[in-house]
Design a protein around this nucleic acid. Structure first.
Lengths: 263, 263
DNA sequence: CGATTGTTTGACGGGTCTCAAACTAAGTGG
DNA sequence: CCACTTAGTTTGAGACCCGTCAAACAATCG
């Protein structure tokens, strides 16, 4: 009785295990979840505000953003999701969508039926808890997003976003400069940060001129991680990325506490 | 075997039942939770960033805000909690606090031990699900808060906040003007909205002069709900306040869908 | 009644927005 | 592989929303 070696949901399992401990049975149950893959073109909405979800969307490849709009049509992206993230696990318990989701680049989504997710959560308390925990970590990200948009200027906002994306994408900031793919336009960045594209461009120029970070050719080039983190006031604790995935931080204090709630 | 008629946790049960259906046994288990009451003075922090929580904090009376600070010391309040809310139910599954919490006015908190909350969730799937759902709804509020701070001007932000607080406090906007207690200073409002106290004051004056809303003597006076909701682009759907508590919206589509996940 | 906290108003400066246009990179079809 | 088209980036000039600093005023509390 070994785990299936290959499954498209392996990255989902890996994400869950960044923050939750699962038994062998639970791992198997995750990998055995049914799914339906779909391809979503860049700039295409695949969840619309008001939809009642019947499945959750896992990002196998690509970038996804959830957003709302004001009456002028200005868009605010409230969360971004990278490879390995489940966009809307929360719809399992609150199926009515109060935001829209869009593929920021060409993206592959695996739709996992709520019925199967519910069954897995019902059968395995550890899975229910892991799902709950993922939702809570999502809200920690939102919390930081509010901080970013509410109380930091354009330069800090950009720096903070780059730091967060680097860590969440699994890149390990070391002393040396490094590069990671980030095929996001300045328009999309503006929508994430509550700024205008023009101002994003100028601020980006400032960071480039100061040799902190550069965005070009669909990639972010971290020139000086320490200064970037300083400018963005970045502390990775809130990402809760203990475990093997990324080592942006020291092991969290929570690690020593009871992790198993539902049993 | 009837429910205890009186318990300090009755309002907690009422909040849960706004969005989740509980069995008789589950209701009893909620009311039987142990707790320890504390009084927190205005402007006093009772959770500090970095704390590892061992209990969750229920607001029996008062106002609470969670916040972060940037290096200049500017504070951003990311969520507010009113009578009947659990401030940090999420710490049951992620005990490390990534924000601080402060009483915005003199407040009575009931501390409920994580061990008891865990036991209740483990014993009753319906409770586990209700807790999970509360966390998800919290993140929906955060989502809207990002929208507010990111893509609305000062006037809209204020209007939106007043609408949200009115609905969450259980006031039922009708055609006629109405008043509800809101003992929050303009400094605190500024920290919620990502503005300065001076600008909050001027914006408040604008709304007062236009006979939309007034804030004075620790109370909000809604002069024209329709215009307020229009200015704030307010749609109460995201509050998920179906059920008896408040009727800011029509019954949600989610109401017809399966509500029981973990059984 | 005095002390403290919170509100209101003014003058000025700055960060960000708006509008507009030139420039560059990426994608397409012949 | 080259024109062509489209999408995205860069830069400039001016305006506006909001921030900053400062001081007077009002409300609350002991």
């Amino acid at each position: 009785m070994t785990l299936p070696v290959q499954s498209s949901l392996t990255p989902f399992l890996r994400t869950l295990e960044l923050r939750s401990r699962l038994t062998e049975d639970e791992r198997r149950a995750i990998l055995a979840l049914p799914f339906h893959p779909i391809h979503v073109a860049a700039n295409q909405d695949f969840i619309r505000q008001g939809d009642v979800a019947t499945h959750s969307c896992f990002v196998l490849e690509g970038f996804v953003g959830t957003f709302g709009q004001n009456k002028r049509g200005d868009r605010q992206i409230t969360s971004v999701f990278v490879k390995g993230d489940m966009v809307d696990l929360m719809t399992v318990v609150v199926p009515e969508c109060v935001w829209s989701a869009q593929a920021l680049i060409a993206t592959t989504i695996l739709q996992v039926p709520h019925s199967a997710l519910r069954q897995a959560a019902a059968d395995f308390p550890g899975i229910a808890e892991a799902f709950w925990r993922e939702c809570v970590i999502n809200s920690a990200l939102l919390n930081e997003w509010v901080m970013n948009v509410g109380r930091r200027d354009a330069r800090s906002r950009l720096a903070h976003l780059f730091c967060e994306i680097a860590c969440r994408s699994g890149y390990q900031p070391a002393g040396a400069p490094f590069t990671f793919p980030f095929p996001i336009t300045q328009f999309q960045l503006a929508d994430m940060l509550g700024l205008t594209p023009v101002h994003v461009n100028r601020t980006l120029k400032g960071l480039r001129d100061d040799r902190v970070v550069d965005l070009a050719h669909r990639a972010v080039q971290i020139l000086n991680w320490d200064r970037l983190a300083q400018v963005g006031e970045f502390d990775a604790t809130y990402l809760q990325l203990r475990g093997g995935g990324s080592a942006c931080q020291t092991p969290s204090a929570a690690e020593q506490t009871q992790m198993w709630v539902l049993q």
